[in-house]
Simulated assay, not measured.
Amino acid sequence: MQQVKGVVARAKGQPVTVETINIPDPGPGEAVVKVQACGVCHTDLHYREGGINDDFPFLLGHEAAGVVESLGEGVTDLAVGDFVVLNWRAVCGSCRACKRGEPWYCFATHNATQKMTLADGTELSPALGIGSFAEKTLVAAGQCTRVDPTARAAAVGLLGCGVMAGLGAAINTGNVTRGKSVAVIGCGGVGMAAIAGSVLAGASTIVAVDIDDAKLEWATRMGATATVNSTQADPVEAIQAATDGHGADVVIDAVGRPETWKQAFYARDLAGTVVLVGVPTPDMKIPEIPLIDVFGRGGALKSSWYGDCLPSRDFPMLVDLYQQGRLDLDAFVTEEIALDEVEAAFTKMHEGSVLRSVVVFS
């Protein structure tokens, strides 16, 4: 066992603190990773606010890249010293989805068996099974995906959650291909990544929708061909106007509210696709829509969980595209911060003044 510093949320709504964390030696199928960088994601704030569950205290952080420091028994596809991006979907290889050749839908993903603890032995709940606002963390070996070791950790670590969710919502779930039209509702980190994914896939028209003009400016820099401030114009009408009156082939809801989902439903073309990647709260309901409209418009209504990604397939490919200059992951890194600045980063997130603050370890 070793001790490191990590960011802990002890109680609902309370400011996070930097505390001493006990990291067990890796057991069978586990790995200890020395974290180099970890993005501050809205999901971490959800944990702090009790919006995920009430299993306090939480060890926050989950968008991370680092170097494998030690391995437990039975791990054969990693080596000490490997540069890895962490993921929260270590696939099992034996469930129904894995056996039918769709491991990105794995129904039995897993995390490390052992628990990290506070110095007094109190067990910690790691955010998304990772807990990487820490100098080191313990994960299941399957949560480590080896990528190009020369890549910038602060950028590629963001594939661990939000950026992958948005890229995957466009490329994997929405099946955006060359020449298709896309609309993205909500231009936070996930929505911005959906725009980047649509550009990467060759979309001809990309309409960005938000209520914040600054975010719409970011969206334009990311590759959006048209923008809509939905406080000033009806987004459905604006998306239709930007697509020759038809509606977009793919509409991605990166907000996850009933009203934005309904906008996405009506802003798509006939036989178009709606992708829900924004995370709703448990009390939200699908808005009332005439069933004849569901039938008459055809197409597909999909949800995208982690961008329907398979880390072993997608992470190395996307890092290679980043290294080639074809995917600008650096654009998502607004600032690099220290471990004790996470609470301030949550405030900036609320203000909408950052895409991602990234904790960088020396």
Rank of each mutant, 00 (worst) to 15 (best):
V342T: 02
I211W: 03
E63H: 05
D283E: 15
V80E: 10
S353I: 05
G296E: 07
P258D: 11
A97C: 11
D320V: 08
S94Y: 04
L216R: 07
M1W: 05
K5M: 10
A193N: 07
G129K: 00
Q3T: 13
E259D: 15
T173C: 08
A90D: 02
G27Q: 11
C92K: 03
Q263S: 14
R178L: 14
W88R: 05
N87P: 03
Q14S: 10
G202M: 06
E335N: 09
M116V: 12
A203N: 10
P282A: 09
L158K: 05
G160H: 11
V209F: 08
T145I: 15
F83P: 02
I52Y: 07
V139W: 06
R48V: 02
G191S: 07
G223M: 04
G101Y: 04
G298D: 10
N22Q: 12
D25N: 14
V176S: 09
F315H: 11
P15N: 03
A194N: 12
I239D: 02
T43H: 08
G272E: 12
Q14V: 04
A267L: 03
A141N: 00
A153W: 02
V277C: 15
Y105M: 14
E336C: 06
G66Y: 06
T273C: 14
N53P: 01
Q240I: 00
E343V: 00
A165D: 15
H110F: 11
C95Q: 04
L301H: 11
K180V: 08
V35Y: 00
N229L: 03
Q2I: 12
A196I: 09
C309T: 15
K215T: 00
D308E: 15
